[in-house]
Design a protein around this nucleic acid. Sequence first.
DNA 1: GGATTAAAGTTTCAAATGAAACTACTTTTT
DNA 2: AAAAAGTAGTTTCATTTGAAACTTTAATCC
Lengths: 150, 150
Amino acid sequence: MNEMQRSLYLPRFLPYRLTKLSGMISRSLAAKYSKMFDLTIAEWRIVALLGSNPGLTAREIAPLASLDKVSISRAVERLLKSDRLEKRILEGDRRSAALYLTAAGQTTLAEIIPLAQEYENQLLAEFSPEEIEQLDNFLNRLDAKADALG
Amino acid sequence: MNEMQRSLYLPRFLPYRLTKLSGMISRSLAAKYSKMFDLTIAEWRIVALLGSNPGLTAREIAPLASLDKVSISRAVERLLKSDRLEKRILEGDRRSAALYLTAAGQTTLAEIIPLAQEYENQLLAEFSPEEIEQLDNFLNRLDAKADALG
DNA sequence: GGATTAAAGTTTCAAATGAAACTACTTTTT
DNA sequence: AAAAAGTAGTTTCATTTGAAACTTTAATCC
């Protein structure tokens, strides 16, 4: 019954499509962040996280931002240099430091958020609220499954 | 009316979610291809394309595989070395070469396709046919929109 | 038809990446 | 309480990446 498949149609292969889509989006946003704020994607993620979770440590950021500790170390270094972050060595454990946005960091965040939201809104402009919910649901399920397969 | 948004919840930000998802999937597949066939993702894409479109040139592959010409040049070089590809200089234009899978290349492709299909099937295992169609539709629309915004 | 411009693919070079080693500390073991 | 094992974050080093320059061939211009 089942004929062996002799070829695979790349444009319909889900991993390819996701990589292509996320690549287009990331490049587009990275260019914007970089040009307007001299910020990398890793830096942007950290700033966004610290906006709602001040005082996180590098280790805590890693899983929340899907970044490895090397990337975090380098991004934090740059954010400190640009005075957008402040580092407070933890009293209880002097290997770690709690990270906080400075006033400048908060300003940066406040400036980027509308841009990021606007970009997301444009991506979803032609999606109805029901479709957005459906997409959300699909992404959650794919994420969980990819995690399980990983 | 509209309150200025002071933070952005990263785990629900579409670009972040797509990057994370595609990263998990790509890493997982890249590890498989690399371990089992000593093939990179770029090489895999080229082999897959030539399976259904024998005789493509590097320039033609670029948009179909979403690869830049440097990546293609390097991937083709490796595929030639591993005897999975054959290169025939075009009669009409000696700068270009038509690329073909060798018998070995076809064997590789025949071996990988079921793995790739199986991985995709697992990702979508809990999706109904209607949901798969819906997802397909969403991805097409996001792709077109990202392209337009890009 | 020789000079100019353009295109295909390769190479070079500098920047980004990430695994592994390292440093500085902390916790656990005995 | 000293030794051993473990953890947070940094640095090193080798690999990957991609933009720009380059080489070769083709097309266009005058």
